[in-house]
């Protein structure tokens, strides 16, 4: 397996809190990976470290051989769990913005998706509803031809009908050599698209297997295994 994302003994502490605790992990290319865990288990912290938004307290992380920085940001497309759109731009402005800064951004693809989702390019970001903003962000992120997509709770804020479309969008828009990591706790919704599953609990990786392995070894779905591992 090639090493697109590699962590060695990665830890992040916030004061006494261990948000990530000694994580060692290798993820190859061409996978759709579910990063699954309850709230505050370290999913977002992990993604923020991958994007250089947090500096690890100890340990190492490499993305395609690069430490998080300018070179890794060129090949990583990140959807944070919050709305980062400013309120003065139009949808078309933010598309130009992405086009300006990311060499791998595909403008036609973005406009195509906007059309399909019935979002007007001339609308101001300020006037969009919360769900539409999330869709715009997802369109921006998926219109890049990145090597690694890091999607933090991509379906958290949208209705179940839009969820299917979004998952379909994700699957349709990444190329075969790219890897998608999706963090969520809505497992049953995304189970069918996953190749690999990582369970994370209190900052530690408790399981990293393919979905097939899970089914063969336990005879359970990812959702029911999750409920078992994370039983309160």
């Amino acid at each position: 397996m090639n090493k697109l994302l590699e962590c060695k003994n990665l830890s992040k502490y916030f004061g006494p809190v261990r948000a990530l605790d000694n994580v060692t992990l290798t993820i190859g290319s061409g996978r759709i990976v579910g990063l699954l865990g309850p709230n505050a288990s370290g999913k977002s912290t992990f993604m923020k470290i991958c994007n250089d938004l947090l500096t690890p307290s100890s340990g190492e992380i490499r993305i395609a051989g690069f430490e998080p920085g300018v070179e890794s940001k060129k090949i990583v497309s990140y959807l944070p769990e919050r709305n980062y759109l400013n309120d003065w731009m139009k949808v078309s402005d933010i598309i130009s913005f992405f086009d300006d800064f990311y060499a791998d951004f595909n403008k036609e693809k973005a406009y195509d998706m906007l059309n399909k989702l019935n979002i007007q390019a001339e609308d101001r970001l300020k006037t969009l509803s919360k769900g539409t903003k999330e869709k715009v962000q997802l369109i921006l992120v998926m219109s890049r031809d990145a090597q690694l997509y890091l999607l933090d709770e991509p379906i958290g804020g949208v209705d179940p009908a839009a969820r299917d479309y979004i998952l379909e969008t994700i699957i349709r828009n990444y190329n075969e050599n790219a890897t998608v990591i999706i963090s969520t706790h809505l497992i049953s919704d995304i189970e069918k698209v996953l190749d690999d599953v990582i369970f994370i609990k209190e900052g530690q990786i408790v399981l990293h297997k393919t979905v097939d392995e899970i089914r063969e070894e336990t005879g359970k779905s990812v959702d029911s295994l999750f409920r078992e591992v994370f039983r309160c």
Binding site: V70, K73, Y78, R82, Y84, N86, F101
Partner: peptide
């Protein structure tokens, strides 16, 4: 707002030093 607020998630993930 642009760097330290929510918009920082966009600005600091641009391939810019």
């Amino acid at each position: 707002k642009n760097l330290l607020g929510d918009e920082g998630y966009l600005m600091f993930t641009l391939p810019v030093k």
